[in-house]
Amino acid sequence: MAQVIVVTSGKGGVGKTTSSAAFATGLAQAGKKTVVIDFDVGLRNLDLIMGVERRVVFDIVNVITGEAKLNQALIRDKRVDSLSILPASQTRDKDALTKEGVATIIEELSQEFDYILCDSPAGIEKGALLALYFADQAIVVTNPEVSSVRDSDRILGVLQSKSKRAEEKRDPVKEHLIVTRYDPNRVEKGEMLKLDDIREILAIPLLGVIPESESVLKASNTGNPVILDGVSNAGQAYKDAVARFLGEDRPHRFIDPEKRGFLSRLFGGRAA
């Protein structure tokens, strides 16, 4: 049986799509058969971040309405074997998604894949609710900023009450925290919430800390998930997070201000 993982946050623009693309790519690199679904119907973006925008023929809504078969809509990634993308519709609205339709798609994907990642839209409305409904695990993406932390707390409440697992009173959705756009220098100056404070407030296991990094924009410019950028600190942080997700024990990096010592200049490099 496939594991269904929702990447969610409540708030928009915190890095869900960036994280979905990185995670899906990382899991596939680790040899897991992975599919990543864009649930942001009307505002599709995962295709761009994954660099497959010109290969979109059919989308998730076409599959739900029966206009296309699932494997016609799936886009196989050309960089990483065993990675597929199911794009959102750009022209329809979120009402085109139905619980039954999504259930059928997830059911069918479960036959073929190990991991089904659901890139949630922002908000706690229909699209976001559907993205998390079938989840076995949740990656909650949070920025070190008050509104993002509050919205993450809210979405945790939704996961605990409105997911299928909650409704059926099964084991709860397994929660993971990803703190993104973390800037250790600003944290040190007291301008940004500390990692430990976010952990204390949200009280869910930490999967990774992704530093604020110029490489993320570079990656989205070219349509290559940042995890493929092995020299960037954001790419490495995502790699660590995926490894932790798969059970490896790795220390957290990039959470302290860069020491501009001789060795770090030689080997560590600056925010790439």
């Binding site: 008050v146 509050r150 809210r154 409440g157 009450s161 944290v187 007291g190 919430l193 500390k194 407030i201």
Partner: peptide, 25 residues
């Protein structure tokens, strides 16, 4: 003895608002 920071204020405000919201939730 660092002066109170804006990040400290953020934490405090979050703790209060969330304690509140969690109860009503």
């Amino acid at each position: 003895k660092p002066p109170p920071t804006s990040a400290g204020a953020a934490k405090e405000r979050l703790q209060i608002v969330l304690a509140h919201e969690r109860i009503s939730r």
